[in-house]
């Protein structure tokens, strides 16, 4: 599979301290295992790499993976704490189940707190979206680190 990173995507990844190889690893894993959510056109996949959970947002176009974005968080994803009946248009490719809006627990530096996520209750899987991970979760991690210092 060939990977396509636009200059804008490369810039975003650079600002977030992510490498193109990290994103490739996430996509490789997702395409090999079907461990991703998809709305039919776009995919979101995640993989733990070191201390980070790294996400790739991408589309598959023939033999190309066109990367739309990548982001990461340090908090570890735990269990689902809330799921609504609202479908978000996403399906978990691994089991075909509909993905819902919900919340999942996250743990970091000994504390466990909740965050809004896309959740699939049958598998217990949860995915945090870019709008949250790129700013609010990153800021929260900083506050956790500062307050526990």
């Amino acid at each position: 599979m060939e990977y396509v990173f636009s200059d804008a995507v490369k810039e975003v990844l650079g600002k977030r301290g992510l490498k193109e190889d990290d994103i490739k690893a996430v996509i490789d894993y997702a395409e090999g295992s079907n461990d991703k959510i998809t709305d039919g056109a776009k995919n979101i996949a995640k993989k733990e790499i070191g201390d980070l959970t790294v996400y790739a947002v991408y589309a598959v176009d023939g033999g190309n993976a066109v990367v739309e974005s990548g982001y990461a968080h340090k908090m570890k994803v735990l269990d689902i704490v809330l799921d609504s009946s609202d479908a978000e248009g996403w399906t978990y490719a691994k089991n075909g189940a509909q993905v819902r809006k919900g919340h999942a627990n996250l743990t970091y530096m000994g504390a466990t707190r909740s965050g809004p996520a896309l959740v699939e209750p049958t598998s217990g899987e949860a995915w945090f979206e870019e709008y949250l991970a790129a700013s609010a979760l990153a800021a929260a991690e900083g506050l956790f680190e500062a307050k526990r210092a």
């Binding site: 908090m75 809330l82 609504s84 919340h103 996250l106 970091y108 707190r113 909740s114 965050g115 809004p116 949250l132 609010a136 979760l137 929260a140 506050l143 956790f144």
Partner: peptide, 11 residues
């Protein structure tokens, strides 16, 4: 509100 509001890790 229970199932609709967004809970961040610091809520």
């Amino acid at each position: 509100f229970i199932n609709k509001i967004i809970y961040s890790p610091l809520t």
